[in-house]
């Protein structure tokens, strides 16, 4: 399955991002109360937009698969919104902006049935956070151990998780 997602920590323990205990007794990030790891992207936190595509966790700006900020057409931009230029002054080409579950998980782990299904909601940073299960029939989750049903439907179980900050105050 290519589960090379574990990262070393200072105490020598290797943990999949999203499984480490955090403030408020969550796992990985606010609102996540179970030990399933985060779907892998360019950042440690699996923040996505409403279509499941990656966002920069700090400010919710869209990023491509390389972790670069992008504009509405997917072109890489800098912090001020100007097009990123290469060394020759030519604008850098756009990269893919894959959905963390339906595209990246399917491609990286060869789980062709991976899909965002069940969700739950928690109040985080003053707004409602939608926590989303990336579900598959895989018997193992991204952590490498046995998968759990979570909020998935049918025969699917939770493979990894992402979250979507809704903007709705709570």
């Amino acid at each position: 399955m290519g589960l090379a997602t574990r990262r070393s920590t200072a105490d020598g323990v290797t943990r999949v991002p999203g499984t480490e205990p955090t403030h408020g007794d969550w796992f990985g990030f606010c609102g996540h109360y179970w030990t399933t790891g985060s779907c892998r992207g360019s950042f440690r936190l699996p923040r996505v937009d409403r279509t499941g595509r990656p966002l920069r966790p700090a400010d919710g700006r869209p990023v491509d698969d390389l972790g670069r900020l992008v504009d509405g057409r997917g072109q890489p931009i800098d912090e001020s919104g100007a097009r990123l230029l290469g060394a020759d002054g030519v604008p850098l080409p756009a990269a893919k902006r894959s959905r963390l579950c339906e595209d990246t998980v399917r491609r990286r782990y060869r789980l062709n049935d991976a899909v965002l299904q069940g969700s739950w909601y928690r109040c985080c940073d003053g707004q409602i956070r939608k926590l989303w299960d990336c579900c598959s029939v895989s018997p193992r989750r991204i952590n490498g151990d046995a998968s759990v049903t979570g909020y998935c439907r049918g025969k699917r179980k939770v493979f990894c998780v992402v979250y979507y900050d809704t903007g709705m105050p709570c």
Partner: peptide, 19 residues
């Protein structure tokens, strides 16, 4: 159309009545 949706990515603004 998906490009339009991408362009709307980021933090949505709430609307309607609350609280």
């Amino acid at each position: 159309l998906p490009a339009t949706a991408d362009a709307q990515g980021g933090l949505p603004e709430p609307s309607g009545a609350a609280d």
